[in-house]
Design a protein around this nucleic acid. Structure first.
Lengths: 192, 192
DNA sequence: GTGCACTATCTATGTGCATAGATAGTTGCC
DNA sequence: GGCAACTATCTATGCACATAGATAGTGCAC
């Protein structure tokens, strides 16, 4: 259900086409939730059928058309409901730690490579997330600015605070992962 | 592919039935990787067909039979290969942080409930993982003891170290999640 | 000797997602 | 005027997994 709610969240700002949404899932929201077009377009059709969205065909150039989706009142309600409902946590299923538990089966070199890849992965994310926070703080986030334009200014602080808070969480996680992988590299050295 | 490799990892210690494996996925390994019986049994059949396992029927009581699977040389090779191959990291898809980004849509009470649930979830895991480490350190882990019996004593330190290292990583992650949720609770107070 | 918890396995249906490939119109540039 | 890059959307196949329900034998306790 998260995909649907990620879509609803974006459409609370303004109506969008599937393609618009795709671009957002590749950029801003994509740092938290990713979705390919093959998932987005069918989801939009289903959500329209369920009354969460209302689609209208918009002409585009001479012969082209595209379908722009707006969130309905039912959609807003559904989103608020989801926001108020606790998530249930999936069972643990973590390939990285699964492998770590049997690292004696890997060659030390392969083990090192993988820990370094872990560090590289989270370092990259870290930079993206830090950049997001910078954008949020300097008012350089288009999507956030448009969102702020739709809510009373008394809500601006809240809205911004939760965005920053989200990315801070991602950063904290990345920091923990990097520190863990670095301890792993040290451990490999010690065991040799 | 992780399920298959989790199964291979367990079967490097000794042959087991699907039911045995299920119990392990509910207990020890389950802290890192979970799988229901409806996934395990078909996987075992497929892995036998692929030559990774060899199954033999074992009588059980008067009329009962069960199928015990042993890892083959091909299975060991496949497992080692997986262990030496870097994982590829899935795209970000994190419901918790997705929701956090739009927390202004939740009522403050609902938001608090969810952050507390987050804390409760990871606190519970934390205790399980700490218990696992205690088991590892005191030699109280059956599965680990049986595993150690299959490897030369020169490898014991390594084997134990990686297990502990794995759970330390899970603990570090849980600590980070709890700290983040606590900052969230504070943030909610401040915004009110 | 009956009932109950446990061992043991299998099947069916549906969702979410990855991957890949197809189609077609638009815009801008050289 | 043609080509490339981009906009816009759709479809197909397959895997991993959740959920649920079915079947049947075992072992023990009362």
């Amino acid at each position: 259900m998260s995909l649907r709610n990620a879509i609803l969240a974006l459409l609370t700002v303004e109506p969008m086409t599937g393609y618009d949404l795709l671009k957002h899932f590749e950029a801003s929201v994509g740092h938290v939730w990713h979705a390919p077009d093959s998932q987005i377009y069918p989801a939009l059709r289903a959500m329209e059928k369920d009354g969460l969205l209302e689609g209208t065909d918009v002409t585009w150039g001479q012969r082209g058309t595209k379908r722009r989706y707006a969130i309905t009142e039912a959609g807003r309600t559904a989103f608020r409901e989801w926001m108020d409902t606790p998530l249930d946590y999936p069972r643990d299923r973590d390939p990285v730690h699964l492998k770590a538990a049997y690292l004696e089966w890997a060659t030390p070199d392969a083990a090192r490579l993988q820990l370094r890849a872990h560090i590289a992965h989270y370092t990259e994310r870290l930079e993206q997330w830090r950049e997001k926070i910078r954008e949020i703080e300097t008012g350089g986030s288009d999507m956030l600015n448009r969102r702020l334009a739709t809510v009373p200014s008394s809500q601006h602080e809240r809205t911004i605070a939760f965005k920053r808070y989200t990315y801070e969480g991602m950063i904290a996680r990345a920091d923990a992962e990097i520190a863990w992988a670095e301890r792993g590299l040290k451990l490999l050295d010690e065991l040799e």
